[in-house]
Design a protein around this nucleic acid. Sequence first.
DNA 1: GAGCTGACGCCTG
DNA 2: CCAGGCGCCAGCT
Length: 107
Amino acid sequence: MTKSDTFRQEVYRIVSTIPRGKVLTYGDIARMLGRPNAARAVGYINSRNPDAPSVPCHRVVGSDGSLHGYANGGVMAKRALLLKEGVAMVGERVDLAMSRWDGRLAE
DNA sequence: GAGCTGACGCCTG
DNA sequence: CCAGGCGCCAGCT
Protein backbone atom coordinates (compact mmCIF):
# COMPACT_ATOMS: atom_id res chain seq x y z
CA MET A 1 0.00 0.00 0.00
CA THR A 2 1.20 3.43 -0.81
CA LYS A 3 0.20 6.94 0.09
CA SER A 4 -1.50 7.08 -3.29
CA ASP A 5 -3.92 4.53 -1.92
CA THR A 6 -5.95 6.78 0.32
CA PHE A 7 -8.33 5.45 2.91
CA ARG A 8 -11.29 5.82 0.59
CA GLN A 9 -9.47 4.09 -2.26
CA GLU A 10 -8.84 1.13 0.00
CA VAL A 11 -12.45 1.14 1.13
CA TYR A 12 -13.74 1.08 -2.43
CA ARG A 13 -11.32 -1.69 -3.29
CA ILE A 14 -12.44 -3.88 -0.40
CA VAL A 15 -16.13 -3.23 -0.98
CA SER A 16 -15.70 -4.10 -4.64
CA THR A 17 -14.17 -7.38 -3.54
CA ILE A 18 -17.16 -8.49 -1.50
CA PRO A 19 -18.68 -11.52 -3.28
CA ARG A 20 -22.36 -11.57 -4.16
CA GLY A 21 -24.52 -12.89 -1.36
CA LYS A 22 -22.07 -11.78 1.32
CA VAL A 23 -21.76 -8.60 3.35
CA LEU A 24 -19.21 -6.74 5.43
CA THR A 25 -19.62 -4.32 8.31
CA TYR A 26 -18.24 -0.79 8.40
CA GLY A 27 -16.20 -1.82 11.41
CA ASP A 28 -14.75 -4.82 9.61
CA ILE A 29 -13.56 -2.71 6.71
CA ALA A 30 -12.09 -0.14 9.06
CA ARG A 31 -10.30 -2.95 10.86
CA MET A 32 -8.94 -4.34 7.58
CA LEU A 33 -7.41 -0.94 6.94
CA GLY A 34 -5.87 -0.84 10.39
CA ARG A 35 -8.41 1.65 11.77
CA PRO A 36 -10.74 -0.42 14.01
CA ASN A 37 -12.44 2.79 15.13
CA ALA A 38 -12.79 4.38 11.72
CA ALA A 39 -16.16 2.80 11.00
CA ARG A 40 -17.62 6.29 10.85
CA ALA A 41 -15.14 7.36 8.22
CA VAL A 42 -16.01 4.28 6.16
CA GLY A 43 -19.68 5.13 6.35
CA TYR A 44 -19.03 8.73 5.40
CA ILE A 45 -16.98 7.68 2.41
CA ASN A 46 -19.74 5.35 1.25
CA SER A 47 -22.32 8.11 1.61
CA ARG A 48 -20.18 10.20 -0.72
CA ASN A 49 -19.63 7.14 -2.89
CA PRO A 50 -19.51 8.46 -6.48
CA ASP A 51 -19.50 4.90 -7.79
CA ALA A 52 -22.76 3.69 -6.27
CA PRO A 53 -23.41 1.21 -9.09
CA SER A 54 -19.71 0.47 -9.55
CA VAL A 55 -19.13 -0.34 -5.92
CA PRO A 56 -21.56 -2.72 -4.17
CA CYS A 57 -21.80 -0.44 -1.16
CA HIS A 58 -25.15 -2.08 -0.41
CA ARG A 59 -23.13 -5.03 0.84
CA VAL A 60 -21.84 -2.96 3.73
CA VAL A 61 -23.96 -2.98 6.88
CA GLY A 62 -23.72 -2.04 10.53
CA SER A 63 -21.81 -4.04 13.13
CA ASP A 64 -25.00 -5.85 14.09
CA GLY A 65 -26.16 -6.33 10.52
CA SER A 66 -28.46 -3.34 10.66
CA LEU A 67 -28.96 -1.47 7.40
CA HIS A 68 -28.46 2.26 7.22
CA GLY A 69 -28.49 4.39 4.10
CA TYR A 70 -27.92 3.82 0.43
CA ALA A 71 -26.93 6.57 -1.98
CA ASN A 72 -28.75 4.79 -4.79
CA GLY A 73 -32.30 4.28 -3.62
CA GLY A 74 -32.26 4.39 0.16
CA VAL A 75 -32.37 1.68 2.78
CA MET A 76 -35.38 -0.03 1.31
CA ALA A 77 -33.61 -0.47 -2.03
CA LYS A 78 -30.58 -1.73 -0.17
CA ARG A 79 -32.65 -4.30 1.71
CA ALA A 80 -34.24 -5.50 -1.52
CA LEU A 81 -30.84 -5.82 -3.19
CA LEU A 82 -29.38 -7.86 -0.36
CA LEU A 83 -32.39 -10.15 -0.40
CA LYS A 84 -32.05 -10.52 -4.15
CA GLU A 85 -28.36 -11.30 -3.77
CA GLY A 86 -29.26 -14.16 -1.49
CA VAL A 87 -28.15 -12.58 1.76
CA ALA A 88 -29.78 -14.08 4.85
CA MET A 89 -31.97 -11.45 6.47
CA VAL A 90 -33.67 -11.25 9.83
CA GLY A 91 -36.38 -8.64 9.62
CA GLU A 92 -34.58 -5.44 8.60
CA ARG A 93 -31.18 -6.80 9.61
CA VAL A 94 -28.64 -9.06 7.94
CA ASP A 95 -27.86 -12.41 9.51
CA LEU A 96 -24.14 -11.86 9.91
CA ALA A 97 -23.76 -15.39 11.24
CA MET A 98 -24.73 -16.55 7.75
CA SER A 99 -23.72 -13.79 5.37
CA ARG A 100 -20.69 -12.09 6.92
CA TRP A 101 -17.82 -12.33 4.43
CA ASP A 102 -14.81 -14.02 6.00
CA GLY A 103 -12.46 -12.44 3.52
CA ARG A 104 -12.48 -15.42 1.19
CA LEU A 105 -14.97 -17.12 -1.05
CA ALA A 106 -17.06 -19.53 0.93
CA GLU A 107 -20.06 -21.61 0.10
C1' DG B 1 -5.54 25.87 8.33
C1' DA B 2 -9.85 25.40 11.27
C1' DG B 3 -14.35 23.68 11.89
C1' DC B 4 -18.37 20.88 10.80
C1' DT B 5 -20.38 16.66 9.05
C1' DG B 6 -21.95 11.80 8.91
C1' DA B 7 -24.63 5.22 5.66
C1' DC B 8 -20.61 3.93 13.05
C1' DG B 9 -19.85 1.62 17.53
C1' DC B 10 -20.34 1.07 22.19
C1' DC B 11 -21.94 2.37 26.87
C1' DT B 12 -25.55 4.04 30.05
C1' DG B 13 -30.32 5.08 31.55
C1' DC C 1 -36.26 -3.16 23.54
C1' DC C 2 -35.80 2.02 22.88
C1' DA C 3 -33.58 6.63 23.61
C1' DG C 4 -29.67 9.51 24.61
C1' DG C 5 -24.73 10.60 24.83
C1' DC C 6 -19.71 10.28 23.88
C1' DG C 7 -15.59 8.96 21.14
C1' DC C 8 -13.60 7.67 16.81
C1' DC C 9 -11.92 8.85 11.81
C1' DA C 10 -11.51 10.71 7.08
C1' DG C 11 -13.57 13.88 3.96
C1' DC C 12 -15.69 18.32 2.69
C1' DT C 13 -16.58 23.41 3.09
